[in-house]
Write a protein that binds this DNA or RNA. Structure first.
Lengths: 116, 116
DNA sequence: CAGGATCCCTACTGATACTG
DNA sequence: CAGTATCAGTAGGGATCCTG
């Protein structure tokens, strides 16, 4: 059969990219992960929000919860006043670094050409 | 100043990742581009839709228009009956291949650990 | 076949206000 | 400070009908 791309081994639901967008979903997912990877140390919520500007508080909270459940980020709460919560990228999360570095580099080289 | 990550050179709006998610947006963007890159030849609309299953017709159309405007994909219409329209990844689009291959490989290696 | 158009509905995203 | 609550808008999805 010719041109039956849908029967390729990794097409459709078996595509790693479809899995990716289903497991690591949301507009801000990549920018947040990349920022945590670059910082590579514990960051407070508000510091992180400023670094991923202009993300909203709600969205950052939601994404961090998602990453926590996926073992990509750790969350540590300190019993202090004022409250302090620190987020840090995990080893699993760090393993995304080469890929995300590559994506960042691609954007630096081609962002201009993409217009707008 | 300590922990002022928001003043890093590529933080916030200057982050290449924020640019990326603004220029190449939508849940299906990466799966579609990856599929077109792997196929690496002209594909008809309906073949592409089957290969990126389960994307809807509406969403595939919308994304392809976006990619066309960003010079990532070409669209060629044939004056035939029945009509034929073929989409193909551009050189600019292909330059994303190493990055997307890396992402796909990461998913193959770590998808299991991400759960669900 | 490749879409455009419509309706309808849910999920995601954002802005703002409020709380322990 | 680090959230939660609320409201509202936008994006995405499913189904159906239509046209060149």
């Amino acid at each position: 059969m010719i041109n039956n791309f849908s029967t390729l081994p990794e097409a459709g639901e078996n595509c790693p990219m479809v899995s990716f967008v289903n497991l690591i979903s949301g507009k801000w997912a990549i920018p947040i992960l990349y920022r945590l990877i670059v910082i590579d140390e514990p960051v407070r919520f508000s510091d992180l929000q400023r670094a991923v500007y202009p993300i909203t508080q709600k969205e950052l909270t939601r994404q961090l919860r998602q990453f926590e459940s996926r073992q990509l980020v750790t969350r540590q709460v300190f019993a202090e006043v004022p409250p302090r919560v620190e987020y840090q990228i995990t080893e699993l999360g760090k393993s995304l670094r080469p890929t995300l570095d590559s994506l960042a580099q691609w954007m630096r080289e081609n962002g201009e050409q993409l217009g707008k």
